[in-house]
Design a protein around this nucleic acid. Sequence first.
DNA 1: TGGCTATCTGAAAGCGCTTTCAGAAACCGT
DNA 2: ACGGTTTCTGAAAGCGCTTTCAGATAGCCA
Lengths: 349, 349
Amino acid sequence: MLNLSDDILEPPGRSPVALDVARRAGVSTATVSRVLNGSAGVRADKREAVMRAAQDLGFVANGAARALSTRRFMAVGAVVPNIENEAFVRVLSCVQDRLRQAGYTLIAANAGYDLEDELREATFLLERGVDGLMLVGDIHHPDLYARITRSGIPMVQTFSLSREHPCVGFDNAASAARAANYLMDLGHRRIGVISGLRKDNDRGGARVTGIAQALAARGLRLAPEHDIEISYGIGGGRDGFRQMLAGGRPPTAIICGTDQIAFGAMIEARARGLSVPGDLSVIGHNDSDFAPFLDPPLTTIRIHSAEIGHAAGDHLIARIQGRPMVRLTEIDAELILRASTAPPRLDAG
Amino acid sequence: MLNLSDDILEPPGRSPVALDVARRAGVSTATVSRVLNGSAGVRADKREAVMRAAQDLGFVANGAARALSTRRFMAVGAVVPNIENEAFVRVLSCVQDRLRQAGYTLIAANAGYDLEDELREATFLLERGVDGLMLVGDIHHPDLYARITRSGIPMVQTFSLSREHPCVGFDNAASAARAANYLMDLGHRRIGVISGLRKDNDRGGARVTGIAQALAARGLRLAPEHDIEISYGIGGGRDGFRQMLAGGRPPTAIICGTDQIAFGAMIEARARGLSVPGDLSVIGHNDSDFAPFLDPPLTTIRIHSAEIGHAAGDHLIARIQGRPMVRLTEIDAELILRASTAPPRLDAG
DNA sequence: TGGCTATCTGAAAGCGCTTTCAGAAACCGT
DNA sequence: ACGGTTTCTGAAAGCGCTTTCAGATAGCCA
């Protein structure tokens, strides 16, 4: 690196502050602030001088001081159940897109499907001073709502609909019911479910409820041995389907909580000599990247994570900026038909 | 909600500050600060009073004021090329683990494999006042290093080794070479590569170089028509392999930049009537969740993302806290042998 | 009980920025 | 050239917390 005088002058211990810029430009810190924040009403020559001085010094405003002064942290927090889950990552990424455009930062945290942990993480973000908060689902620690209210910042829930709180999501029960109806229309009468853990997870719970109700509406029932709950993942899907087969008469179709679970179930089915969709129809959830590439390509409920993220971001920004905003935004999920579903064999009874 | 007097007393407009707690507890803000930061030397009765007052008021310290005062933001930033990439997400998640234990927050940003964007995002984080910075790879915008130096915060690079900068990673060239040697040991002589975009991506570049050198060391060469660069993803893998077949005599083995690419290539191979590993051996990178479940299970280079993340987190925390830290930490990648690799057919020549 | 040390505590001074408010400078028409 | 505007600018007052420093209090022994 060249030893330009500017570099040498900078004592490495202390980074330049607004006062340094002001002195160098021969103005006051007030003017420095005005220039750097783009507010009008500064004569061109002074504006120039400030810009140059800031540039020379490599001045970067201290975010904490700015936040303290403006009472805006310029960041919003998001707590998701699992930061490694494809759908949540997509949402975070899209929320961040929108925030960035408005000059805000996203700070994401992981709750691990546990209400206490979620409370802890959200409190952490609240302490940091985030200007808004994004959560997943409609089940939260009661103290959490109190703290959010007290902090006075806007909050939005995602991935499910809520009658109490602002939300961007879809009707998990209805979309799962749609999948069940589709299977029944194909002629299936023994339909199973493999879902992720449902504790403190309204999405998972609603989906199973929706399916059960759709079955009931046509005089069928979700047999307990066909209602499996496992921890997420491909391995979980294998285990789940194995468990289901152990429960007596096998279903002719299953609806899975994620595409990973569906993938696992399909692997296990094949290992047992069952063909998909010949002996077993399979439906997943999410429309993951790999879903169209499975063998057979997976029929799945596409959750528009990107749209949810964008809408949630817009929602928070609007409320932070004091603009009016609808309480509920519905981003409908969609049943994507591929080749993992077909009518049951005639002899399947 | 019950209308407890405490709730009513709180004017919703203004959240309580340290002074409110101090008054209610009958002490000064200095003592409040001492109690809430766990510093010793406060008599038990006053400590109690402060705790109760803080509790009653639902007091949450203002993070900006604290940061301004302590000159610590208690957050570190991370800029990764693609926040939706499994390996990077894993690293972020593990870095966060470590940071959290030390009381720090992670703020992640997306650079999209573009040096300018990376500079922009990193600057954004620097402005925020992060206490440390994690980057991916050893190729960055020259201005970025200058800004980091000027800010005086510790930085660590990940996923590759660097002779200049602090880093936690592995030798991409060597591990890819190991895969190539393994294939050559099996008897392969026409080996191809499908990698992600290599522009501004030292990892991708190093891997291809490593493979080319390993081939050269045994008197073979990486034919240009067997050296394919595509954008990441399963679809990319399909396209890439199709492209490779169009280039004349097909390879008997390929090494792919990610498991997704490998998956795509396997799909395309099968569509062309080639069996894996009979006609084509395939090696991936990352050991993704689904790799063991592909058909056949995928041989892949396992990158220990979790360990990299933990080490990077520890590295930053140590330096932030002024503890000494080694400049370079090597977390070796590992070749995981599964069923997608086998000796070439005898007639493959 | 007095005097000395060991503990506690509060007043006050920042941290670095934004923003108000009043004064200075520039501009205008006559 | 002068009063009246209009436009700019800087001094100074916070924002809410931490931390120093000196004074107050408690504890102890003789």
